[in-house]
């Protein structure tokens, strides 16, 4: 039995993209911190900003998904 809307798939895809993107940022930030532990603060700040920007794009997807779901 399959129920639900195609919008849910869209939201899922948006989350997938955001997850990949934020994962990459986190991984790279870890690498950078391991390489230069003294710059950890700056790297964290840049990481959060970049993650927020990606998350913003993903949330566009989620909002559109919600619109589709709520009609």
């Amino acid at each position: 039995m399959i129920y639900g809307s195609i919008a849910a798939i869209g939201a899922g895809l948006a989350v997938l993209g955001a997850g990949l993107g934020i994962g990459r940022i986190g991984g790279s930030a870890m690498d950078a911190i391991a390489r230069q532990p003294e710059a950890a603060g700056k790297i964290q700040g840049a990481m959060i900003i970049a993650a927020a920007l990606i998350e913003g794009v993903a949330l566009f997807g989620v909002v559109v998904g919600m619109l589709g779901g709520a009609k």
């Binding site: 927020a52 920007l53 998350e55 913003g56 949330l59 566009f60 989620v62 909002v63 919600m66």
Partner: peptide
């Protein structure tokens, strides 16, 4: 616009 959507969507979600 992204600021608006980000806060709205995060809290609503």
């Amino acid at each position: 616009f992204a600021l608006m959507i980000r806060l709205f969507a995060n809290m609503t979600a």
